[in-house]
């Protein structure tokens, strides 16, 4: 079966860096947020104590800033050098939301209620774009507030001390939003929904099957056929060990995420 290139090695490596650092940040941050939960001291000890957890948190923060910068650099490189500025910011290959996304949301809900057909998607669906931009918002909000809390004496020179109280609320609630979203909605949308269950390996293998392209992204398929570009994207299957290792990694991350989610729900509602 022919396969279609979707993510290159750079994308896939950044996604793994993102998944690992995100789990590290959540696990080392939540004992503080839910310090009164009975599991908090246990999790803190598991991570090596308060000092070690703080170190893990900061190392993962640096990885986060790293993949974020690496991605921005890639986007600039891709648009300026590879595409030589021949790129439609508003178009099917762009992450920028357009009117069709709103129409797709509307038609998706019609499909959910059984009063219309499933909308036809192109290269990026609206929920994929939401996930993508949510990272910008999240890294921005959590990253900036986190830097304030990391270097309070430095930032205290430019802003009043109560900015750290504001930063604490933003950091903590935004982290809850991010963890709650990733461990439920992102997991379901990409991996756990019946069409992909139990895991969509595309982010690890980088490849879609031709059938998946025709079925999940018919507009893109049609576009590639019409423009005679499908050949460019055809490729052989990924090396088995890469896909297998990816799936194993994916399962581990999903399971750890679910475990942390249970603790978060307990911390949020029980104590």
């Amino acid at each position: 079966m022919a396969e279609i290139k979707r993510f290159n090695a750079y994308h896939r490596v950044l996604h793994v860096a993102m998944a690992v650092s995100f789990i590290g940040l959540v696990a080392s941050g939540m004992p503080l947020k839910y310090a009164n939960a009975p599991w908090a001291a246990w999790l803190m000890r598991l991570l090596g104590g308060y000092y070690a957890a703080g170190l893990i948190h900061r190392i993962c923060a640096v990885i986060t800033f790293g993949y974020f910068a690496a991605h921005i650099g890639y986007v600039i490189y891709d648009i300026a050098i590879v595409r030589k500025f021949r790129f439609n910011i508003i178009g099917p290959d762009s992450m920028v939301p357009w009117l069709k996304d709103l129409e797709d949301i509307y038609h998706s809900f019609r499909w959910f209620f059984g009063v219309g057909p499933r909308p036809q998607f192109d290269h990026f669906t609206y929920w994929e774009k939401f996930d993508y931009w949510a990272v910008f918002w999240g890294v921005g909000m959590i990253g900036v507030s986190g830097l304030f809390l990391w270097f309070p004496e430095f930032f205290g020179r430019f802003m009043p001390g109560w900015a750290f109280n504001i930063a604490t609320v933003i950091h903590s609630d935004e982290a809850l939003l991010a963890a709650g979203f990733i461990f439920t909605i992102h997991y379901f949308n990409t991996h756990l929904r019946p069409e992909k269950f139990p895991m969509d390996p595309v982010i690890f293998s980088g490849r879609l099957t031709l059938h998946e392209l025709q079925h999940d992204r018919p507009l893109e398929y049609q576009r590639l056929v019409d423009e005679n570009r499908l050949e460019q994207y055809l490729t052989g299957p990924q090396q088995t060990w890469i896909t297998d290792a990816g799936i194993l990694f994916g399962f581990a991350i999903v399971l750890i995420g679910f475990f942390l989610l249970i603790l978060i729900v307990m911390g949020q509602f029980l104590y």
Binding site: P152, E153, G156, R157, P160, G161, W162, F164
Partner: peptide
């Protein structure tokens, strides 16, 4: 810490 820092709640 600077004087501004002390405005922490």
């Amino acid at each position: 810490a600077t004087p501004g820092f002390t405005k922490f709640y």
